[in-house]
């Protein structure tokens, strides 16, 4: 199992502007990193870059110093991404939704147990269209418990969750870290990712470059 997930000199360019530049991070097995920063500072973009869903303009990601560009499939197989969208089909039941995503990752695990963890066990046979937004969020988080992956990338995981559900998420994170997993989460709300969790303020990396500066210097990639 790889030990250290890191990013080097990451620059994000989205929607005709530079979002952040020259960003470095490094997280070791068992550690957590909390991304903070004002709206628009690029937390979601950074999470998507970490997942490989978005390409950085400059810089690269690495596992134990080995750039992931060589083996993108290995990278995506080793992570869980929980974005702001829930990826839930209203016409399928709660357990069918979870079973699909877990099965796609080759997990033969117990879907019912994962639903119990997030407190949805009682609703397993309910069509997902009847879930409240907090329950939909819990169902998304159940993916974390349903199949193993060393790296968790969570984008605003606490939105819509009640206090009890935040507690469940905190204990999931603590257990994952104790097993040597890595957790990276972007959030505005206080959440206990662990006393020793690192934090990264994206406001400090706000790009000073402007698009026209770049063109005059001929440095646009």
């Amino acid at each position: 199992m790889p030990n250290r997930f890191s990013g080097h000199g990451l620059t994000c360019f989205r929607g005709e502007r530079f979002v952040f530049e020259a960003l470095d991070f490094s997280v070791a097995a068992g550690e957590a990193l909390v991304l903070t920063g004002p709206n628009g500072s690029g937390k979601s973009s950074l999470i998507r870059i970490m997942a490989g869903l978005l390409s950085p303009l400059e810089g690269h990601l690495a596992w134990d110093g080995e750039p992931i560009a060589g083996a993108p499939e290995d990278h995506s197989a080793s992570l869980h991404y929980v974005g702001y969208q829930d990826a839930i089909k209203p016409a399928m039941t709660v357990s069918e939704n979870l079973a699909f995503w877990a099965g796609l990752r080759g997990a033969r695990g117990d879907v019912g147990a994962a639903l119990d963890v997030v407190g949805l066990g009682r609703l397993a046979a309910t069509p997902a269209q009847f879930l409240s937004s907090g329950q939909r969020r819990r169902l998304s988080l159940a993916r974390l418990a349903a199949s193993p992956a060393p790296l968790w990338l969570l984008d605003e995981p606490t939105v819509g969750l009640d206090r009890a559900a935040v507690g469940i998420l905190e204990s999931l994170i603590a257990r994952h870290r104790a097993e040597g997993g890595i957790v990276i989460l972007a959030t505005h709300q206080p959440i206990a990712a662990g006393d020793d969790a690192g934090s990264l303020d994206l406001g400090a990396y706000t790009a000073r470059r402007q698009v026209f500066d770049d063109q005059s210097e001929g440095a646009a990639a």
Binding site: L79, Y81, A87, K89, W101, R105
Partner: peptide, 13 residues
């Protein structure tokens, strides 16, 4: 609904 992100990240090609 964001499913496409997860399909892209699935271990299967």
């Amino acid at each position: 609904d964001g499913s496409i992100d997860l399909l892209l990240l699935a271990p299967a090609p």
